[in-house]
Amino acid sequence: MPVVNYSAREIVCKIVYVGPGRSGKTTNLQYIYDRVPSNRRGTMVSLATQTERTLFFDFLPLELGTISGFSTRFQLYTVPGQVYYRATRRLVLQGADGVIFVADSQRRQMDENVESLRDLHEYLAEQGTDPREFPLVMQYNKQDLPRDLITSTAILDETLNFRAVPSFAADALHGPGVFETLRAAAELVLGKLSTPVAAGMGTER
């Protein structure tokens, strides 16, 4: 997982939003897109169906400028959530430095959440990645919905977050929790910089 290229003096982090369909992954990206000054962001690429469902992926490049002498860029991706886009998900997840799992807090979506999380773990297992070492952050989206429609973050934590990774309640449509989640993911990913693997020789991505 080389996120840092010493010879080009750049840090590139690929963070992928995964989660069940309609859980709000693209909404996360759109919220971020709207808040980032135009000189810091690239064009958001969104391949969606007519009903605004993500067909292939969304892509949002962020230029964070030069930090500690390194030109720092974040690439945010979303995968299509529906179960039958498994192959596309695999493709987009390829080379991800960190994953944000966007869970749908609606009570009736719990099974989809579990199914999607299992799919993610399957992918990590296929890649031979140790899920305990992999930067993962949970986001419990739609927490703004009426209490009786949603599962509390405590129960979501208990059900989905058995590895006790950082988790955030969020309302991606209005913003709360969106940047917090991204920030936590960024910190986990950047934490990998000092590990021996990442300190490898300026490997090109």
Binding site: I67, S68, F70, T72, A186, L190, G191, L193
Partner: peptide, 9 residues
Amino acid sequence: VAVAVAQHV
């Protein structure tokens, strides 16, 4: 992010 980078680089 800047703080995190500074810590880890």
